[in-house]
């Protein structure tokens, strides 16, 4: 019965309901579209420059950052170049120092060898001279000793022969020699 009642009841239109479950009403689309256009136009008119300006500023900032990065990259590359150059210089300097050290060591070695050779030659010469000198000295000493011994022996012999007759003969010889020397 109830069903019949419901079914028999006249259908009244609900103003909150549209004719289509998806699409609004035509006037709503019209007015909504116009309102939207107005809002967009207003936004374009008022917010557009600000937005444009902000975008430009951002673009500039990004560009600046890009430029700064490029400058930093350039500086870094220059620094890297300098470092590479310095590294090359250091290597060259190291090579030069090593070459100098080698040259000095070689010169020292050569000089040391020459000096050593000279000293050895000097020592040889001195040793030879010392040997000759010692030989000569020993020979001289031996000769001197022989001379002293011979002289002492001669004196002993002479003293033993100097009796009174010999003394008188020596005196007479002296007188005769002096007297004849006029």
């Amino acid at each position: 019965m109830i069903g019949h009642l419901i079914a028999a009841a006249p259908h009244e239109e609900d103003p909150s309901q549209t004719h289509h479950w998806l699409w609004p009403e035509g006037y709503e689309i019209l007015f909504g579209g116009l309102a939207s256009l107005m809002i967009f136009a207003l936004l374009w008119w008022k917010a557009g420059p600000l937005l444009k300006k902000g975008m430009a500023a951002r673009t500039q900032r990004i560009q600046d950052e890009l430029d700064g990065a490029a400058g930093a990259l350039s500086s870094a590359e220059a620094e890297a170049s300098k470092i590479r150059e310095a590294k090359g210089d250091i290597e060259a300097e190291r090579q030069r120092m090593l070459a100098d050290a080698d040259a000095q060591a070689e010169a020292l070695l050569t000089d040391g060898r020459a000096r050593l050779d000279a000293e050895v030659a000097d020592l040889d010469a001195k040793a030879d001279a010392d040997i000759v000198s010692a030989s000569s000295r020993v020979s001289d000493e031996l000769r001197g000793e022989i001379g002293r011994m011979a002289a002492a022996a001669a004196e002993r012999v002479v003293r033993s022969t100097l009796d009174d007759d010999t003394q008188q003969r020596l005196i007479e010889d002296y007188i005769a020699r002096v007297g004849a020397s006029a």
């Binding site: 002293r148 002289a151 001669a154 002479v158 003293r159 020596l170 005196i171 010889d173």
Partner: peptide
């Protein structure tokens, strides 16, 4: 030792055995 040596002023006339031995040495 033997013989004579005479000194007259600066002149020396030597005939001694001592001098002969010294010369020999």
């Amino acid at each position: 030792l033997g013989g004579l040596v005479a000194t007259v002023g600066d002149t020396v006339i030597d005939g001694t055995v001592r001098t002969a031995l010294d010369q020999l040495k």
